[in-house]
Design a protein around this nucleic acid. Structure first.
Lengths: 273, 273
DNA sequence: ATGTTAGTTTCATTATTTGAAACTTGGTTT
DNA sequence: AAACCAAGTTTCAAATAATGAAACTAACAT
């Protein structure tokens, strides 16, 4: 620590200090975020990099297999090498492998949709899921991201985040009012988070999608650090928030088991930032 | 150096010409390949980079979320950012989204384990899967990689690869004899590939795991370019190679539908190299 | 206390990235 | 058909970032 090595003046991802690698990864993120194949010119429009520089990044990433290129349409999309790498990440750095049997049990016990999520860059990252029927665990479902401020798992994790980490995360939220019930500012959120801490679990009361409700409980280490969250989702047609609390004992059992096992397996740190 | 810019003298992944980004990604690959959290010193042992350089790569990758770091154990593992990126890759650059309904149908029709795979860096990359009605203990999931030379899907794809792409891929195979029936050299493989082309489908006759057999058919564009392969897997206890051919009509239907739709969706190129 | 190993920082040298501009290609308009 | 235009690609000197030997520090084991 040379006294000015540790300040972070720039946005995450690029900026000086993150080097060439950081910039290239920012380009990769950009392409991934669009959700469809993009042309070079499209990228260039919003890119902070000059033409030749962006061009070289895209070339290197393509040669590396991090992007795939469609020569006919001249479009770029995230490449298959990522799928291979992510499999390793999913196994080594997510709660999914540990949580698997507990998700299975919870799914069978409740018959409802079950989600396992972790925080990544201030967003909810779903790392596993059980549908009411299918027992498969794959990227069709894992890897999806969602907002933290209007999902049960998101709020459950935020509620137990230390202030130093919470503040920057709240600042990053989009606060888009998906439904009339969506919480749309940091102050209201802090009140909600206090309520969640008081009762030990979070609800999603149609805050993201109308008709969809869920109950979520955070997964914590013994020391109280947030690892992730588990939720059981249903519809207003089928039950109510009070109805969902029926599953609390089962959820609690799963959450505690996962937290304990994660502790013993000495789990990699997954910073929210 | 204007006249020697375009030769490729080095291994894929690193070497001059691939720049800092290529080197950093090689480090990432290295860590992912180990399949467990690794310490810095372990990495250093086999790394071509000097201490300080490797150290900085690992730092940058960690700050970027491509690696996660366990401060207690001082170990690195692939990070969650990869899971997020892979979701986008899976949707945009794999056959999985297109193939999904066809896999479902095939799975229902056969009741057996169904795999969808593509080639990535000369290896078989499983991009989707359906479990058998009566599940057998087997581990293959989306993102998992396997050898090309001793799996049904691998051989099916190799059989239709143009010579220019086939030769380097064959050279890269490990030819490890998993079972007595494993094909262990390129010459025998070329004979096998000819046989596959002659009948239009490939078998895995316990070449990877004893007792596990499968039938696989390549997914091709109308122009004949290999996109991937589809397989139906079972056990010698339950059926035989001849028994598996019963599913051929169903598999063919799925393969043709997927090939056609991929063509229309104008699919990103996924080079085997 | 002392030795040893693993991890981290420094800094002059070296090599790579950078980006404005020129160039090429493929398609469209006059 | 020639001229034009837009998208993509290459060039090259200047600017910047990467490199790696060596020095340093922390933590553990003797």
């Amino acid at each position: 620590m040379a006294s000015e090595r540790d300040h972070k003046p720039e946005a995450p991802g690029d900026g000086p200090g993150e080097g060439t690698v950081g910039k290239a990864l920012a380009v990769l993120d950009d392409i991934a975020a669009r959700g469809r194949p993009v042309r070079f010119a499209e990228l260039l429009e919003t890119s902070p990099f000059p033409k030749a520089t962006l061009y070289r990044f895209v070339q290197v990433l393509t040669r590396q297999g991090m992007l795939s290129y469609d020569p006919e349409r001249q479009t770029y999309a995230p490449g298959l090498r990522l799928v291979r790498l992510a499999h390793a990440a999913w196994q080594a750095s997510s709660l999914a492998p540990i949580a698997r049997p507990h998700l299975d049990r919870l799914s069978r016990a409740t018959g409802e949709t079950v989600h396992l999520a972790q925080l990544d860059a201030g967003q909810v990252l779903y790392v596993d899921k059980r549908n009411a029927r299918e027992p498969v665990a794959m990227y069709s479902q894992a890897g999806k991201v969602g907002p933290a401020y209007c999902t049960g798992v998101g709020k459950a994790m935020l509620a137990y985040l230390p202030e130093a980490e919470l503040a920057p995360v709240l600042q990053r939220q989009a606060w888009h009012p998906f439904t009339p019930k969506t919480i749309t500012d940091a102050a209201s959120m802090r009140a909600e988070l206090a309520a969640i801490r008081a009762r030990g679990h979070a609800f999603d009361d149609e805050e993201h999608e109308p008709g969809i409700i869920c109950i979520a409980v955070p997964i914590l280490t013994r020391a109280g650090r947030v690892l992730g969250a588990l939720s059981v989702t249903s519809t207003t047609a089928r039950t109510s928030l009070e109805g969902l609390t029926e599953h609390l004992p089962e959820i609690r059992r799963a959450v505690e088991a996962i937290g304990d096992e994660a502790q013993d397996w000495r789990f990699p740190d997954q910073a929210a930032e």
